[in-house]
């Protein structure tokens, strides 16, 4: 088990993992307030994907992943998730990030 550092990779691989075996894949969120840490885990008991963060910004992205999994699990693995993912795009952020790094 390794933590995946890139958010997009985590999302993509966890959806893949779920679709491969919808009935035995679970999505777990762990939040620890005193340490300010958030850990997301997707596993089918054979493979385990994890993502760890302490950034509020990532929690916003998590909200979208939550919606994806709610849709996938309540409506079925074949549901079109593009309507969930495409609603509000988070792509506006990278420009800000770029600015910060220039320093």
């Amino acid at each position: 088990m390794v933590y995946i550092s890139a958010w997009d990779e985590f999302v993509e691989r966890s959806i893949q993992l779920y679709r491969a075996d919808p009935e035995s894949t679970r999505y777990v969120m762990k939040y620890r307030h005193c340490d300010g840490k958030l850990v997301l885990k997707v596993t089918d008991n054979r493979e385990c994907l994890k993502f760890k963060t302490d950034q509020a910004q990532e929690a916003k992205k998590m909200e979208k992943l939550n919606n994806i999994f709610f849709a996938l699990m309540a409506r079925g693995p074949d549901v079109d998730i593009s309507e969930v993912t495409g609603k509000d795009q988070m792509d506006a952020q990278p420009t800000k990030k770029g600015r910060g790094r220039k320093q």
Partner: peptide, 30 residues
């Protein structure tokens, strides 16, 4: 599920307050 997921998101937003806010720092930095 849609009704539930929005109330769930609201609860998370209200309680995940110990995460770091990078945006504010970024604004200063930028």
């Amino acid at each position: 599920h849609q009704r539930f997921q929005s109330s769930y998101a609201t609860i998370l937003k209200a309680h995940m307050t110990s995460l770091k806010k990078r945006e504010r720092k970024d604004k200063k930095k930028s």
